[in-house]
């Protein structure tokens, strides 16, 4: 036990660095992924047929591919075009693609659930479609997807562990490095697990709280 605490103390900076990197990756990809996902979701619901088809293909392909494969593909593929992405960039790109596809599908569902009478009513008072979207449809849809969106945050934190495979020094890779040095395998993996648990549990609580607010009209 003393040995473990001693090692934990030595590793505190490495763990903190990894932890912050995990948060950074997750935050960055949920921000970028959400923005892209909203655009794709709108295209998916209201776009002309070719645009709808392209966005449908994007969403289905990304959602049908394991995140690990996305990570590996984003890491290896650009090198062919003489573009070398840093592992961190490749990782964030993969998670962003993943997040965008999910957000697009979630938004499409929420938009489709709004009764068509809303659009008709808005049109009848003379609003143009972009305005209908901005003032009538999106506010309702965004409100509806808020709890799901927050849970997507937890999914991204979990998925961010996969970028350790391409050598991004986030929490899990840092943990593996520590374990490789002191062989306290179980102990340190459990420490990492606990950290993930704390972050995701907080996100889950936040989601539940907000869900209660949202469902109360």
């Amino acid at each position: 036990m003393d040995y473990f605490l001693h090692e934990l103390w030595i590793s505190r900076f490495a763990l903190a660095e990894g932890f912050l990197r995990t948060i950074e990756i997750s935050a960055l990809s949920i921000t970028l992924g959400t923005l892209a996902g909203l655009l794709i979701g709108i295209a998916l619901t209201y776009g002309r047929l070719p645009l709808r088809l392209v966005s449908r293909a994007y969403v289905d392909i990304i959602r049908g591919t394991p995140v690990l494969v996305l990570v590996l593909a984003c890491f290896y593929m650009p090198s062919v075009f003489r573009v070398s992405l840093e592992a961190l960039t490749a990782g964030v790109l993969a998670l962003t693609l993943f997040c965008a596809a999910h957000m697009a599908e979630i938004l499409r569902g929420a938009l489709a659930a709004i009764p068509p009478g809303q659009t008709e009513a808005a049109r009848s008072i003379g609003l143009t479609f972009p305005k209908i979207l901005a003032y009538v449809l999106l506010p309702q849809a965004l409100r509806a997807i808020l709890p799901t969106w927050i849970n997507t945050g937890a999914e991204l934190v979990k998925a961010s562990t996969l970028v350790s495979i391409i050598g991004v020094g986030e929490l899990l890779l840092k943990t593996q490095e520590i374990v490789g040095r002191n062989f306290l395998t179980l102990d340190f993996y459990l420490v990492a697990g606990l950290l993930y648990l704390i972050v995701n549990y907080s996100i889950e609580r936040l989601g539940k709280t907000i869900e209660r607010r949202v469902t109360q009209p």
């Binding site: 979990k158 899990l172 993930y196 995701n200």
Partner: peptide
């Protein structure tokens, strides 16, 4: 639910 699979 809150642990990454890779960690498990």
């Amino acid at each position: 639910r809150n642990l990454p699979i890779l960690v498990i």
